[in-house]
Amino acid sequence: MELTSTRQGDARIVTVQADRIDAAVAIQFKDRMRLETEGGPDRVILNLSSVSFIDSSGLGAIVAAMKQMGAGRRLDLAGLSPMVEKVFRLTRMDTVFTLFPSLDDAMAELGA
């Protein structure tokens, strides 16, 4: 599971470099997210534009990553494909996370 990370303004942008977040990579994803987000800014944007499939294990790993970040920090999701967005909406996780159509839209909220 490859993740890349950059800091832009008051946010850390973590980009998933894989087409799937599923049971096969969920634990690795969660561990990598912890490494990328510990001690960083309060807002993290998870760029999912390369991800075309997510299952319940992947969804759980993203929720776990948010919880690992701790109180007072925020994990937003950007660039969801229609299929991935559908999973978030069907599971009502769109009420837990703020979903942005693109990374540019998420950054615009920062005023960046």
Rank of each mutant, 00 (worst) to 15 (best):
E2D: 12
E2Y: 07
E2C: 04
L3P: 00
S5F: 07
S5T: 12
S5I: 01
S5Q: 11
T6A: 14
R7V: 14
G9Y: 15
D10Y: 05
A11W: 12
R12F: 01
R12E: 13
T15L: 10
T15M: 13
V16N: 07
V16K: 00
A18P: 07
A18T: 14
A18L: 07
A18H: 09
D19A: 12
R20T: 14
R20N: 10
D22C: 03
D22M: 07
A23F: 15
A23V: 08
A23H: 15
A24E: 14
A24F: 11
V25Q: 09
A26G: 12
A26D: 08
Q28E: 14
Q28N: 12
K30G: 01
R32A: 04
R34A: 15
R34G: 15
L35E: 05
L35T: 11
E36L: 07
T37Q: 07
T37M: 03
E38G: 05
G39Q: 08
G39V: 06
G39D: 04
G39A: 07
G40Y: 04
P41F: 07
D42T: 13
D42Y: 11
R43M: 02
V44M: 01
V44C: 10
I45C: 12
L46R: 00
L46N: 01
N47Q: 10
L48I: 03
S49Q: 07
S50Q: 09
S50M: 09
S50A: 13
V51I: 11
S52I: 09
F53P: 03
I54F: 00
I54S: 08
I54Q: 08
D55N: 06
S56K: 07
S56Q: 08
S57K: 02
G58S: 03
G58Q: 08
L59T: 06
G60L: 03
G60F: 00
G60E: 02
A61N: 05
I62W: 01
A64I: 00
A64K: 01
A65I: 06
M66S: 10
K67S: 08
K67L: 05
K67G: 02
M69W: 05
M69I: 05
A71C: 08
A71G: 02
A71E: 06
R73L: 07
R73C: 03
R73V: 00
R74F: 10
R74D: 15
L75H: 04
L75A: 09
D76S: 04
L77K: 08
A78T: 06
G79V: 03
L80H: 03
L80W: 07
L80F: 10
P82W: 14
P82M: 11
P82A: 11
M83E: 04
V84I: 08
V84Q: 12
E85I: 04
K86P: 09
K86E: 03
F88T: 05
F88H: 02
R89E: 06
R89K: 15
L90M: 14
T91S: 15
T91V: 04
T91I: 06
R92P: 11
D94F: 05
V96W: 01
F97H: 02
F97Y: 06
F97V: 00
F100S: 05
P101I: 02
S102I: 13
L103T: 11
D105V: 04
A106P: 04
A108Q: 14
E109P: 10
E109S: 15
L110R: 11
A112F: 13
